[in-house]
Amino acid sequence: MNSWHSFLHQQGASIVEQSTISFGEKPGDYPGLESKTTITPLIHLGLLSVKGADSARFLQGQVTCDVQQLSLGHSLIGARCNLKGRALADFLLCQPSEDQLLLVMNHRLVQQNIDELSKYSAFFKTQLLDASKDYQLIGICGEEAETLANNIPASYHYPLRDGRQLLIVPTEDAPSVWKELSASAIPTGNEFWHLQDIRAGLGHVQTETVAMFIPQMLNLQAIEGISFKKGCYTGQEVVARMKYLGKLKRRMYRMTTDSPLLPAPGTPCYLPTQKQSIGNIVQAANVDNNHQELLVVLTDEASKSDTLIIGEAPAQAVKQQILPYDID
């Protein structure tokens, strides 16, 4: 347990496997929290730092978003792919200073991406580092989220598409920032944050789903996570072909169900009348004591079904929900 986790434990948090945190809230509390301002330590996320004079030029050839469009204080959604166009990680790209870029991604994927990117970074004036110990990530939800974030000078502050706010705080300042925020907001665990991600239609690559989806399956084209005007990058040929020449056979949908089991990322899905998988779970979260919301990549046919078999569970009723963006 690191110093930040120890501090959070003193504040009443329970932490499991260094990636799941709660403050005693249960799924039955979530409906009541929707109308409150909440804060969440995003311990499931980490930071990959790309620092040096060539950082933007280097990253431009490695990711789906147009790094040249990034500016100080702003962020971009993007993904990094393999040669087959499969997403190895998705991220929020931030620029805290002129010569440094930070990629916010699943913390278990940071070192793997550093190792793979290092094969190419040797030809550029840039340095790849795991900055997860240097900064802590705090999320804010609710109507007062922007006001609270603006009142924290000791952090980098990035608004998300749905109004939530992301703070990147130097580790030495994180305890004082947390105490200041908790005076005006309710501490909550990261399952509540995952639920907000699902409702925002933000599907994330996790260890179980590395190289499972092409970016368009995660709807990245609908949230400006793919630039079709920039130059080449690893996997670009496949991603571009899917837009201009191919037909996307699977895409991500938002579903609700009342199953008592929370399916793991990557869990295969089936139609009751077929034995072949027709999709996979991206992520899932409880809504209350009786319902779940899912982001799931499905075929068009499967998305119209009101019944799915998820993993080895019995067939269950599902209902498609709207996403907060249009899908091409």
Score class of each variant (00 low, 15 high):
Phe192Gly: 02
Phe192Ile: 06
Phe192Cys: 03
Phe192Ala: 04
Trp193Phe: 10
Trp193Gly: 06
Trp193Asn: 04
His194Val: 13
Leu195Gly: 13
Leu195Ala: 11
Gln196Ser: 15
Gln196Cys: 11
Gln196Gly: 13
Asp197Phe: 01
Asp197Leu: 04
Asp197Asn: 13
Asp197His: 12
Ile198Tyr: 04
Ile198Asn: 07
Ile198Glu: 01
Arg199Val: 09
Ala200Val: 03
Ala200Asn: 02
Ala200Thr: 05
Ala200Trp: 02
Ala200Leu: 01
Gly201Arg: 03
Gly201Ala: 11
Leu202Trp: 00
Leu202Gln: 08
Leu202Ala: 04
Leu202Cys: 08
Gly203Tyr: 00
Gly203Glu: 01
Gly203Gln: 01
His204Arg: 13
His204Gly: 11
Val205Trp: 06
Gln206Gly: 12
Gln206Leu: 15
Thr207Cys: 11
Glu208Tyr: 02
Glu208Leu: 11
Glu208Met: 08
Glu208Ala: 14
Glu208Asn: 13
Thr209Tyr: 04
Thr209Cys: 06
Thr209Trp: 09
Thr209His: 07
Thr209Pro: 07
Thr209Asn: 09
Thr209Val: 11
Val210Arg: 06
Val210Thr: 13
Val210Phe: 03
Val210His: 08
Ala211Val: 13
Ala211Pro: 14
Ala211Glu: 14
Ala211Arg: 12
Ala211Gly: 09
Met212Pro: 06
Phe213Lys: 07
Phe213Gly: 00
Ile214Phe: 11
Ile214Asn: 11
Pro215Lys: 09
Pro215Leu: 01
Pro215His: 05
Gln216Val: 04
Gln216Cys: 01
Gln216Lys: 11
Gln216Leu: 05
Gln216Ser: 05
Met217Tyr: 01
Met217Pro: 01
Met217Ala: 12
Leu218Thr: 10
Leu218Ile: 06
Asn219Met: 02
Asn219His: 07
Asn219Leu: 02
Leu220Tyr: 07
Leu220Val: 01
Leu220Gly: 00
Gln221Tyr: 08
Gln221Leu: 06
Gln221Val: 06
Gln221Asn: 12
Ala222Cys: 09
Ala222Tyr: 05
Ala222Leu: 07
Ile223Cys: 03
Ile223Leu: 07
Glu224Val: 06
Gly225Pro: 00
Gly225Cys: 02
Gly225Lys: 02
Ile226Gln: 07
Ile226Met: 04
Phe228Trp: 11
Phe228Ala: 09
Phe228Tyr: 10
